[in-house]
Write a protein that binds this DNA or RNA. Structure first.
Length: 573
DNA sequence: GCCGTTTTCGGCCCGACTGTTTTCAGTCG
């Protein structure tokens, strides 16, 4: 059975071939839109179809729904097969080279019979490209340069790796150039889970000096282009960073435009144009050309009667519609978090002592912190036996008597075994303040087996929280196969919370799943899974992910004061 | 191909940059 990503990928390939064919751009956009929507769905299309929900998805019409059904039934799509037969696979790959779009790839294929990046490189080296209609010597040289660039480039990197890099640029420019405003924009500002490049926006009395300073920053490996208002560089980790200087009166307009998302901006501009306005990175204008604003983001939205949503939520998931009603809910913030419940210490595979964690948590303004070391079943993690866990609990309770302003909770991250049983007997689980149950093994079970396994763990009355529910590691390991809606329905019914794990490679649940969890009434907890004191600060990435999933403080248990928090745990309900 | 409290037909975001152009096409974000 094809999964959502397979189906989204097939639609994307259809898009690429239709572009090569020069098909109607709006029809192409419909497929592109469908691919984007499908890759963001938290549930398998097969489940959505089973309850008759396919056509209810905005952007999926009669034709595309029928194609989805065909793929679910037969495992492929005739239209896709036919289109793919029209071009060799390598022609699609050619379009991954920067600057090579469908027109160029199509021309090179038709005129020169070029069918891969390697062949394209050879054609350029042999000088066979310049002279073609629309191609000169510069185009030919540019193609070679861009192929080399593609081969040097890294792909997308996790948010938590890109974030400090952006900070370094901001700090570096503040220290070495006359910047006034400086703000990262793009997907980093939206706190998307992975980042393809970094956009930084500045204003300055001397933009040229800023551009020159960018090229001199120590983490810059290569300067791609530098002009009076824009400089593009590749950093030592292979990530592209663009720095743009704009006029102060356009800062808000440029920030809004560069932050996106694309889908958010398209929706916004469509709406604006119907109401007689025009939006661009230079401001908001009436049809008459009169400029209404652009110094701040707020000035861009106000004339449209749309409330400003935080960047994390600008994904065209209903924020514009709600903003039109003037409603912006209060979304969860780091300052709302009163305790981190998933922290490892040197009792298992962490580095810090109990005391160090207590002090670090207190320093971050927390009321409580959950010590959640691994159970013994996970040999590699130096897990706790029943005896050591009981000894740790004794020490934690003793330590609490000496602590002021912070309470350590005996948590415990217990393995969910392959058969769904837990790694500690129930009488031990009962002694904990809080039990996190997590999958750390047998990642490749079928959806049916994996779902049954996790549901069995949720049967245990002492399980309060499902830790990193899907087990995915961004860029390294796929999520386990789960009927996530089924798991969430059961969790909601029993009052089991689901984790938003802040670990940079996890961010698990992800934003789309958090949206579903809220819809189904599943309580959330945002935790770091810290293995050292510094990791406690990664909470910001979990909080950002929760915000992307529209989580409000009331959805997140660890925004509650200690007594109320404990009362909401499944075991105490 | 999708969508609709201004439309079931006629729209569908906007601008910069680049190289090839003699007024524009292609790509990108």
């Amino acid at each position: 059975m094809l999964g959502n990503n397979d189906i989204a990928r097939i639609f994307e390939e259809i898009v690429e071939i239709m572009e090569l064919r020069g098909d109607d751009v709006f029809r192409i956009r419909a497929y592109q839109n469908a691919a984007r929507i499908i890759s963001g769905l938290p549930e398998p299309l097969s489940d959505i179809r089973a309850r008759g929900g396919l056509r209810k998805i905005s952007g999926i019409g009669e034709k595309i729904a029928a194609k989805i059904e065909e793929m679910l039934d037969t495992g492929h799509l005739r239209k896709h097969d036919e289109l793919m037969a029209e071009f060799p696979a390598g022609v699609l790959e050619m379009m991954t080279v920067p600057g090579i779009g469908p027109r160029t790839a199509g021309t090179l294929y038709r005129e020169l019979g070029v069918t891969s990046i390697d062949e394209m490189e050879r054609a350029a080296r042999e000088g066979r490209i310049h002279g073609l209609r629309g191609f000169g010597e510069k185009s030919e040289a540019e193609i070679l340069e861009n192929i080399a660039r593609l081969r040097r480039r890294t792909g997308r990197i996790p948010l938590a790796r890109a974030f400090p890099l952006a900070q370094q640029f901001v700090e570096g420019l503040k220290a070495t150039a006359p910047v006034r405003d400086i703000e990262p924009a793009g997907s980093l500002r939206r706190m998307k889970e992975d980042i393809g490049d970094i956009d930084i926006l500045v204003t300055s009395d001397d933009p040229a000096a800023v551009m020159a300073a960018v090229a001199r920053l120590p983490m810059v490996r290569e300067v791609l282009l530098t002009g009076p208002t824009k400089t593009s560089v590749i950093t030592d980790v292979g990530l592209q960073v663009d720095v743009r200087a704009v006029e102060p009166e356009n800062f808000g307009a440029a920030l809004q435009y560069l932050t996106g998302s694309k889908a958010h901006n398209v929706k916004l501009r469509t709406l604006a144009s119907r109401a007689g306005f025009k939006l661009s990175e230079y401001g908001i204008f009436r049809d008459t050309g009169e400029r209404l604003g652009g110094r701040t983001e707020e000035e861009m939205y106000r004339p449209l009667g749309i409330a400003v949503f935080p960047p994390e939520l600008r994904e065209d998931r209903g924020e514009i519609e709600l903003g039109l009603k003037g409603i912006v809910p209060e979304f969860v913030q780091v300052a709302h978090i009163r305790g981190d419940l998933h922290v490892h210490t040197d009792w298992s595979d962490g580095r810090a002592t109990l005391e160090e964690i207590a002090q670090a948590a207190k320093a971050r303004g927390y009321e409580y912190v959950g010590i959640a070391d691994h159970s013994a079943g996970r040999g590699i993690a130096h897990g706790l036996t029943t005896e050591r866990l009981r000894e740790q609990m004794r020490q934690i309770r003793a330590l609490n008597d000496t602590l002021d302003g912070i309470t350590l909770l005996c948590a415990g991250e217990v393995d969910i075994r392959r058969d769904g049983t837990l790694d500690f007997p129930d009488d031990v689980l009962a002694e904990l303040d809080l039990c996190i149950a997590s999958v750390h093994s047998s990642f490749t079970l079928s959806e049916e087996e994996q779902t049954a396994r996790v549901l069995k763990a949720l049967d245990n009355p002492y399980v309060d929280l499902l830790g990193h529910p899907t087990g995915r590691l961004i860029g390294e390991r796929e999520p386990i196969s789960l009927n996530i809606r089924r798991i969430m329905e059961v969790a909601a019914e029993r009052g089991v919370a689901m984790e938003v794990n802040s670990w940079p490679e996890r961010l698990d649940l992800n934003d789309d799943q958090i949206l579903l969890a809220r819809e189904l009434g599943v309580p959330l907890m945002i935790n770091t899974d810290a293995h050292a004191v510094d990791h406690l600060d990664q909470i910001r990435f979990g909080v950002a992910t929760a915000r992307r999933g529209w989580a409000e403080p009331k959805d997140v248990l660890n925004t509650l004061p200690l007594e109320q928090f404990l009362a909401r745990l499944r075991r105490n309900r």
